[in-house]
Design a protein around this nucleic acid. Structure first.
Lengths: 222, 222
DNA sequence: TTGACTTCTGACGTCGTGTCAGTAGCTTCT
DNA sequence: AGAAGCTACTGACACGACGTCAGAAGTCAA
């Protein structure tokens, strides 16, 4: 199953006349499609099982055949998205080529991915505090980013490219910043301008990691 | 009315025997006290009106005499907190004294404030997506920070202290970072280490604003 | 003591949830 | 073809939390 990036056609001529039966995966796809469609236009707070299944050839209780609850649905949609996203960040994470250009490429990849699945990611982000499993998924997601970024920072510190700083905290802060900014910019329609966001985020990452603070002015690291 | 910073005593010998009446403000205070107490130990998702009022000499419906709903309660608690917080950020925002030291002082102030009211702020942050008025309050809160920080950045750019960069986007990103980090660190017990957080955040702010990126390496601003 | 006023509560209707016993539609076997 | 079996599906239900309201309970002034 895959999360369609664009909003699917609302109802492109269902040929199976209502109340004929589906293969299980077909039904799942239909539910996910309806959810993506809904979240493109509304926020998670307005989503109910009834509302969702009304956009479907199935009845409300059928939802519970496939998902435990709405959070569970989000969970499975999110898992799909995460995989694709992580690959796009490879260049800098894996330390390929010139660092600052690689960082830019990785950020661009992440931004693209969020621009594509932003509304679903926003829903996950917002709903996470209200469901333990979703919360675990989200913090796992962020922690994996933190691990990867911290590892890269430490590697570059060993090479003398990055000055001594708390790698873990810095990684975590920069990732949290990206998450908040990208969700704000691409989590609902109309979305922001990817290029402008890329420039701004890249500038901050570069400054925070590779920039030199004038020693005369820096009360902490002098 | 003021939000007590420490968790109040759970029930310090109520002398008015249950079901005697209160002055309105006294009842409000009691409800707020119960809420602060609850949020110190649990997250907002587990808070219900019934649960809350059970920690009180009043009955569940009495809640609705004072607040429209739980979000409304948070709203009024948050308003209290915001005022105090903003003052503590004055040094850098107002441009007093040496910038990097002032920035540190301001950050310290904000961190102190979040350390004090973190659990309530976290509740607001988490609940905001589920209530329009709360959402408006939170984005208003963040926008006021963005305005203030962007204005300071622009002022310092005019003085040549900060290089050309998108003031608004940078301000917004740094504020979003602070919000996420501080809520994560101080939004629940046990809280993180304020000094370590201050160092890390300050380093990023300084680098992003006052740091010089080696021109040779910077593909964006060269 | 009475009356006026305010605070407060028991009881109610509503909405969304999650479940379950039972139906309906496919598939397989004889 | 017809029966048996399986699985996807549904109508109807019980539950929990919400928000409201008519009226009780407490307080104060005269």
């Amino acid at each position: 199953m895959s999360i369609p990036s664009a909003v699917p056609e609302p109802e492109a001529q269902k040929e199976p006349t209502r109340s004929s039966r589906h293969a299980p995966d077909e039904a799942r796809r239909e539910i996910v499609r309806a959810a993506v469609c809904f979240l493109a236009a509304n926020s998670f707070r307005d989503l109910t099982v009834g509302e969702l299944m009304a956009q479907t050839t199935l009845s409300r209780p059928a939802f519970y055949q496939y998902y435990r609850d709405l959070h569970d649905l989000l969970l499975s949609m999110f898992a799909e998205i995460e995989a694709g996203m992580r690959e796009l960040a490879n260049p800098w994470i894996e330390g390929e080529g010139e660092p600052i250009a690689a960082l830019r490429a990785s950020l661009r990849g992440v931004i693209e991915s969020v621009a594509q699945h932003g509304t679903v990611i926003r829903a996950v982000y917002e709903a996470a505090p209200f469901d333990e499993r979703l919360e675990a998924a989200w913090s796992g997601f962020m922690e994996r980013w933190d691990d990867a970024v911290a590892a890269r920072i430490e590697a570059h510190q060993r090479e003398g490219l990055i000055r001594p700083l708390d790698a873990r905290r810095t990684a975590s802060a920069l990732n949290a910043m990206d998450a908040a900014v990208l969700i704000a910019q691409f989590g609902r329609h109309p979305q922001g301008d990817p290029d402008a966001v890329l420039d701004a985020q890249h500038a901050i990452w570069v400054a925070a990691l590779y920039g030199r603070v004038p020693a005369r002015l820096d009360p902490v690291n002098r």
